[in-house]
């Protein structure tokens, strides 16, 4: 298995040497026929499941930027997701704006909300920051729940699907291409951020904020920037969720339970590991789906997974795979050097 991963990594590294976008284009092309394979191979339902997995990938990759890269504890991400969803939905319904206009505005507004959620990070850390962000996240949900203009208790109905000309994204397959494209771009940008000077500043803050400050990094600015970038991801995921058929939003979609599930995805995949976040989102979505029939034990299953992961795999699935790949490379290098000697 590790050999497979190492092989894939070597192949994609080789491609990226030709052009940095080449591996991504290839990955995108490989994912194009997936809905048809799922529809005709298993069931049309799995395309819907893939769509939901893509939404969670966007969310967990976004959360990973602030939590994994920058080391800031946030439990308010779901509130940002709600802001993106409700803003895009209301703009589309009340002002008849097409998705292509309402979604970018929603993303920008969520980015601004990210500043508010991130402000406590300037002065707070650890559990205190978690509490502050939790409060902000819950406040958003409560505000939606009690404000008739935001759907209140009945929810927001009849949110139009995205469309281009006469083509409407109203089927599982068509929506897949929208969410999958966004997920791929989201992952790519996450890697780009990680490799940039901004990403290095984030990591420096994560390792030691005081040392980073001494090294000339504007710590408050970069902390806020991490929250804003993360919020942009949540805003996009929210907008995509709102317009996904049947186009309905309710404040119950954004509770603390959803936030814990999101954290589970990041922890399961591996905090700070981009591919880990992707794997975590897919694994949690699939486990949740496959345990639907055992609803009575579902919270127990998720609870046990969380505890086992934290105890035995603190770096998550992504961390374990990465470690194994490094080990394998090391052994191969050792064997090569022995052979040449």
């Amino acid at each position: 298995m590790i050999g497979f991963f190492t092989g894939v990594e070597a192949f994609f590294t080789g491609l990226s040497r030709i052009h940095r976008l080449l591996p991504w284009i290839l990955a995108y092309l490989l994912l194009l026929p997936l809905p048809f394979l799922l529809k005709f191979g298993i069931s049309e339902y799995y395309v819907d499941l893939a769509n939901r997995a893509c939404l969670f990938i966007l969310l967990s990759v976004g959360l990973n930027i602030v939590k994994g890269f920058c080391g800031q504890v946030t439990v308010g991400h779901i509130g940002l997701y709600a802001i993106g969803a409700v803003t895009s939905a209301l703009l589309a319904i009340n002002y008849q704006l097409p998705f292509w206009v309402s979604a970018p505005i929603a993303i920008l507004i969520t980015g601004l909300a990210g500043i508010i959620v991130g402000l406590p990070s300037v002065r707070l850390e650890g559990a205190y920051l978690a509490l502050a962000t939790l409060g902000l996240g819950e406040s958003v949900r409560i505000m939606i729940a009690v404000t008739p203009a935001f759907g209140s208790s009945t929810g927001i109905m009849m949110i139009p699907e995205p469309k281009i000309g006469e083509f409407i994204f109203n089927s599982f397959e068509s929506y897949y291409y929208l969410v999958m494209t966004c997920a791929i771009i989201g992952i790519y940008l996450s890697f780009a951020i990680l490799r940039s000077s901004t990403g290095r500043a984030f990591q420096a803050i994560r390792e030691d904020a005081i040392a980073a400050s001494v090294a000339g990094i504007n710590v408050p600015f970069y902390k806020l920037l991490a929250f804003v970038i993360s919020a942009l991801y949540a805003g996009l995921a929210g907008a995509l969720f709102a317009h996904m058929p049947p186009g309905y939003l309710h404040h119950n979609n954004f509770t603390i339970i959803e936030m814990v599930t999101l954290l589970l995805m990041v922890v399961l995949g591996g905090i700070g590991n981009i591919w880990g976040g992707v794997i975590g989102a897919i694994v949690v979505t699939v486990i949740y789906d496959q345990t639907k029939d055992y609803y009575f034990y579902q919270p127990l299953i998720f609870g046990i997974i969380m505890v086992v992961m934290v105890v035995f795999m603190p770096h998550g699935i992504g961390g374990v795979v990465k470690q194994a790949m490094i080990k394998r490379k090391f052994i191969e290098n050792q064997e090569e050097s022995r052979g040449s000697a």
Binding site: Y248, H250, N252, N253, I257, K292, D293, Y295
Partner: peptide
């Protein structure tokens, strides 16, 4: 039989 937890999604 499935549990929807009173959540629309």
């Amino acid at each position: 039989l499935m549990n929807d937890e009173c959540k629309s999604d």
